[in-house]
Structure formats: structure tokens, C-alpha cells
Simulated assay, not measured.
Amino acid sequence: MPLKQLSLVLVAVCALSACGGVDPDSPLGQRKAIFKQMLKTSEDIGGMLRGRLPFDGPKFAEGAVKLEALSHEPWKHFPPVKESEHTSARDAVWQRQARFQELANALEARTGELVIATQQLQLTPAKMIPPMNNVEDACDACHKEFRDH
């Protein structure tokens, strides 16, 4: 294939591959970014409880505060009408908004309880496992009903 044709093919492939990207400023892009931050934070503090990372009480408490703040953010980026077919959210998010909001509120409450636990209980893995499990259960409950895996 001559160089000119090869160049045109490469440009076309690059252009088409860019079409699959998500606009980071769109509601979908915004909530995906927040959910990624939540996952990273949860994995870090959960890793401390499961021995993948050394337990550091102050870092765990800092992570709990960050996770609690993030837990309030993604919901405002779910518009009233589904905006994209390229989402992991099931149609039920928009069809059963009251239930979706109920589970969002549950996650917010569980992350708040985790922060309170870091302030009131001794910062040890044994003491932090139950409130962290509650956070993870709240995440799982919403994913089971509203996320395409």
C-alpha cells in the first residue's frame, strides 16, 4: 500500500477510535470520573483492612472522609432522561428514580457512619471492618439493581 493510502487509513482509524470516547464534561463523563475516584479510594482503604496495604490509621480516616465527600457527588450527574447508550447504568436508573435515590442515600449514610467510626472508635482494622463492610454492601446493593456488569 502506498504511503499516502496508508496515511489516510491511519487517520481514519484514529478518527473512528476517538468517536468511542466519553466527553469528560458530559454528565456521563463527570459521574464516571467520580465513580473511579470512589473506587480508588475504597480500594485503598479496603486494602488496608484486607492486608494488601499496611494499615495506617490516619490515612484510613483521611480516606474515609474523602469517600464520604465523593459519595454525595455522582447523583447530580444523572440527568432526568438517559443521555447516552454508552453507560453502565441500566435503564432502571431513569425508570425507578425513587429507588435509585434511596440507594444513593443509603451509600451516603454508610460513608458518614464510616467517618464517625474513625472518630469514635480505635483505628484498628478489626474496628473498621464492620463499618467498611456496610459501605461496600451499600455499593453492591445499588450495582445489583442499577448497573450493567
Rank of each mutant, 00 (worst) to 15 (best):
T41F: 02
V115T: 01
E43C: 07
A18N: 08
Q120M: 04
E145K: 08
G112E: 02
Q97P: 09
D91M: 04
Q95S: 07
A33N: 12
L70I: 07
E43V: 10
G29A: 05
Q101K: 15
P27Q: 04
A33D: 11
N134S: 12
M38V: 06
V81A: 12
D44Q: 11
R96W: 06
L67V: 13
C19T: 14
A98C: 08
V81T: 13
L53Y: 08
R50D: 11
P27M: 05
R96Y: 09
A89E: 01
E102Y: 07
C14T: 12
D91P: 01
L28M: 06
I116Q: 13
K66M: 11
Q97F: 14
K127G: 01
L114A: 03
L103Q: 04
L107Y: 05
Q37V: 02
C19R: 03
L3N: 12
F60N: 02
G46V: 08
C139K: 09
P58K: 12
E68Q: 15
L28H: 03
F55N: 07
E113F: 04
L10R: 13
G29C: 10
A61I: 06
V65W: 00
M128K: 06
M132V: 03
S42D: 03
N105W: 10
A117V: 05
A89L: 03
K59C: 06
M48G: 00
L6V: 13
L67F: 14
N105R: 14
E136M: 12
L8K: 12
R96E: 15
N133G: 08
A98H: 08
F60D: 02
G21L: 15
F60Q: 01
E43W: 10
E145V: 11
A15M: 14
A126H: 06
A98I: 13
P27R: 01
F146Q: 00
W94V: 05
K59V: 08
F55V: 05
Q119L: 10
S7E: 14
D56G: 00
K82I: 05
V65R: 06
D44H: 12
P79I: 12
F35R: 09
Q30T: 00
Q122R: 06
S17D: 05
M1P: 12
K32H: 10
Q119V: 05
I116A: 15
A138M: 10
M128C: 09
L67D: 04
N133Q: 15
F146T: 00
N105D: 15
V93D: 09
A117E: 02
Q119Y: 06
G51C: 12
L103K: 02
S7N: 11
P24I: 04
R52Q: 09
R147Y: 04
H143C: 02
A69L: 12
S88N: 10
V93M: 15
F146G: 01
D137L: 11
P79D: 09
A98W: 09
P130V: 04
V22C: 13
F100K: 00
E68F: 11
A109L: 14
L107N: 03
L6D: 14
E73R: 09
K76Y: 13
H72I: 06
A12G: 08
D56M: 00
S17N: 11
P130W: 07
Q97D: 06
A126T: 10
C14V: 11
Q119W: 08
K127Y: 08
V93S: 13
R90Y: 04
Q122P: 09
T41E: 05
A92Q: 03
L28I: 04
G112M: 01
A12V: 04
